[in-house]
Every structure is written in structure tokens, then in C-alpha cells.
Amino acid sequence: MSAAGCSLFCSLADDEREFGMADYEAARPRWCAGCGDLAVLTSMQRLLAEEQLAPERTVFVSGIGCSSRFPHYMKTYGFHGLHGRALPVATGIKLHRPELEVFVVMGDGDCISIGAGHWVHATRYNMDMVALMLDNEVYGLTKNQSSPTTPAGYATNTQPYGTYLPAMNPVEATLGITNASFVAQTAEWIPPHLYATLKAAYQHDGFAFVRILQRCPKFTGDLFQQYIQSPDMVELLEHEAGVETPALHAIYKNRRRHDPGDIDAARRLAEMDDVVRLGIFFRDESFPRYEETRSLPSFTAEERISILNEEFDRYAV
């Protein structure tokens, strides 16, 4: 997101203020010990402090799920809505108040199962906001049911003999949506990468979709262990136009230079399932943004009345 120009909605007085991470902390998180959501929260608070976002002009919107408790733990405006429906609410906020900084936090079920229609269309609207999908590859809040990203064969409470269907690939799917302008993947257990990705997402002008692989020690504790234990199963996509994390090079030897402007390469890389790829797959700021396409001047009550009177003339008897 870019810092939008000051409209009649913003006050200028706060330019003097300085925000530290603590200024973005609200209620104490109630996630399970070791839950990956916490790392995302911390990284986000660091980002907001770094970017000096005014808490009152920042809104976190979420759906329902463990991950969707996120806004409660941020000292910003927040809207914790319905399962699957965070994106429409965020769309309404951004459409009416484009100068606000909007972040959306969803779970995997939230975003690409019940909210699948909204995920596709929000991508297409390409409004300037950050959309995080915290993907623990399971339904956490409702206690261990298969989600669209649960690996085939993985046992859950609803599919105890193993999940029946092959897992969806959210990165590949998002890259297929018209107007998708920023698609990235990161993992919460690699904080430098997480932070760099969130930062790039925030700085992107348009809809920044980030899938964050997220550990759920409660239900899918084993799922991401292999990537943690063998960093070779991870490939970092690096580029000066994407993210670069030299601090990680000592551990993550498996790296690929990928130009995020190359959509064909992005799709190819997203499709291959040999390793887990982290980085920015695609980014292009030239796509139309819905809130800009629909942007309009505002009018006073009197101005509206005079236009409405003209309109009435058309219906006059």
C-alpha cells in the first residue's frame, strides 16, 4: 500500500507522534503456546512501527478462525466479522475510505473454502490492501477438520482415514486470476523472510495476497517439521524487485533468482511441488485498482440538493 494523499478525513496533528511496537499492542493473544499466528502478529507490529502507520487510520479486518482473532490483538481499528467474509467488508471500507490502510487476515478455510468467491473477486478488484492467508492447512478453531490445503491422506477429525482430495495450491490459483497484482508465499517460522514479505506486500500498490505457512502445534504440528528440519526442502525466490534476505543465505542454500515481473515463470514455479518456494512470485503495479477506478469527488448537502432538484426536473409533471 502507498500512503494515500490526505483527504478531508485525516487530521494532520499526528505527524508529530512517534509509534513504537508497543503502540500497536492490544489484548494479550490467546492462541495456543507455539502457535504460528503469534509470529505473524509480532512481525506485523514491527512493520507498522517501522512504517509509522497512524493506528487510527489503520484497519484490520478478519473472518472467523483462530487466525481471525488477529485484529483483537492490534491497537488499531478492527473488524472481526464472519467466517469467509472478511474481504467484502474490507472492500467496503476501502471503497468508501480509500485513504485508510487496510489489512485483511484470514485462515485457509476462511479464505479459499467458504470465502473462495470473495478471494477470487477481491483479487480481481485489486484494491490497495494487504490480504494475509494464515495457512495451517487445517481448520483450527473448530478443532481439526480438513481444509482445502490439507495434504491428501492426512488424517483429520472429519476425514479420519486421510484427507480424500489433493490439496489446493492457493498461490497457483491466485496467479490465475485476472488482475492479480501481488502474490507471495512465506513461512512464519522464518521471521526475516516473513517480515521482508509483509513489508513488500504493504509497499505494493494494489491487492497484495500473501500465503503464510503457519504452524499449528495443536493439530498439524508435524506438517511443517520437514521444512524446518531440512532447509533444503525450501527454495527462496530472490530478486531485487522481490525480496532478498541475505541473512538467511547461510541456512537456505536452495535459492533461485526469479523476476516477479515474469508471470509465466511465476506460474511455472507455483505449479511445481518439488520444494516449498518462498518469496514474491508475481508483482505488477500497473493493473487498475478498483478504488481508484471508482474514486469520486464528494459534495456538500446543498450541492447534492441542487443536483437532485435538476434530476427531479426530469420526472416533473
Partner: peptide, 8 residues
């Protein structure tokens, strides 16, 4: 949802 977001 959009109407609620805008109202909010």
C-alpha cells in the same frame, strides 16, 4: 459485506 464495511 461491502455495505457493512462502508457503513462501518
Amino acid at each position: 459485506g461491502v455495505a457493512i464495511g462502508a457503513s462501518y
